[in-house]
C-alpha cells in the first residue's frame, strides 16, 4: 500500500485561505492529504500548535500566509517567518526533518499556486515517508516551543534586527542566530532531561546514555536545572537526580 501522508495546513484568512477557495472555485485539482485549519493571520500559528500537530499524528505541517508586504495585519507574516524559523531549529533537535514544516506565501489570487504548493508539499512528505519520531523527543520539542526565553527572543527578533537594540545599536543577524541556536539547543537538552527524569530518577551518566549526549553536557544542564529548582539531587552512589515536586 502506498503511503498517504496526513498533512495539516494553517492558512491565513485573508490570503492563503482565500487562495485555497479560489483553487476550489476554479476547480483546480490537488492532492487530498491536506486538512486546513483557518487562522486569521499566519502570525497566529504558534510553534506549540505546530508541534501539537506532529504529536497528534501529522506527517507534515504547512503554514501559509500573505506575501511579504501584503499582510492584512501589517507584519504578521514576518512574525510567522521568525516563528517557523525557530520551529525548524527545534524540529531538527527532535530529529524531525525540517522540511516536514512548510512555510509558503500564497495570495488570494493564487489559486493555481495554492494547488501547486499543496501538491509539491504532499509529494515531498510522501517521499519522506511517515513521521517516525520518538514521542519523547516530540514531547521535549513541544515543551520547548512553550519556553519563555525562546518565545521572547522570537517575538523580538524582527524589531531587534530591523530597528536595533535598546542601546541603539544594530544587532547582526548572525549574532542573533547564534544566540537563538544556543538557547534552542540548551533548552532542548534540558527538556529532554526533564522528560526522562519524569519517568524515573537517574544519575547523570545514565541520562547521558539514555539521551545519547556526552555526559559532561548532561552534567552542565543538570547544574542549571537544579539551580532552577527543576530537579534535585538524591544522595548516594551514584548521585541520582529527581524531578522536583514543586
Amino acid at each position: 500500500m502506498t503511503f498517504s501522508p496526513r498533512i495539516v495546513g494553517f492558512m491565513c484568512n485573508w490570503c492563503s485561505y482565500a487562495g485555497a477557495d479560489l483553487a476550489g472555485i476554479s476547480r483546480i485539482k490537488y492532492a487530498p492529504n491536506l486538512r486546513i485549519i483557518r487562522v486569521l493571520c499566519s502570525g497566529r500559528v504558534d510553534p506549540y500548535v505546530v508541534l501539537t500537530a506532529f504529536q497528534k499524528g501529522a506527517d507534515g505541517v504547512l503554514v501559509a500566509g500573505c506575501h511579504p508586504g501584503d499582510c492584512h495585519y501589517i507584519s504578521g507574516n514576518y512574525q510567522a517567518e521568525k516563528k517557523m524559523k525557530a520551529t525548524w531549529k527545534i524540529l531538527s533537535k527532535a530529529g524531525i526533518d525540517q522540511e516536514r514544516l512548510g512555510l509558503e506565501w500564497i495570495s488570494a489570487a493564487e489559486g493555481q499556486r495554492f494547488a501547486d504548493v499543496v501538491n509539491s508539499f504532499t509529494q515531498l512528505i510522501t517521499e519522506l515517508g511517515p513521521l517516525q519520531a520518538d514521542p519523547q523527543k516530540i514531547a521535549s520539542a513541544k515543551e520547548e516551543t512553550a519556553d519563555f526565553r525562546i518565545r521572547w527572543l522570537v517575538g523580538r527578533e524582527k524589531d531587534l534586527l530591523e530597528e536595533g537594540n535598546v542601546f541603539g545599536e544594530p544587532v547582526e543577524e548572525a549574532v542573533f542566530e547564534t544566540l537563538l541556536d544556543d538557547v534552542v539547543s540548551a533548552q532542548y537538552i534540558r527538556n529532554s532531561i526533564l522528560t526522562v527524569l519524569k519517568e524515573q530518577s537517574m544519575s547523570a551518566k545514565e541520562l547521558a546514555e539514555t539521551l545519547e549526549i556526552p555526559s559532561h553536557v548532561v552534567v552542565e544542564h543538570l547544574i542549571h536545572l537544579r539551580r532552577g529548582q527543576k530537579v534535585h539531587m538524591v544522595e548516594g552512589h551514584p548521585i541520582r537526580y529527581e524531578v522536583s515536586a514543586w
Binding site: A204, K205, A208, S215, V219
Partner: peptide, 9 residues
Amino acid sequence: HVVRPSDGE
C-alpha cells in the same frame, strides 16, 4: 556534593 564534571559520578 563532591562529584566530577565529566559525568556527575
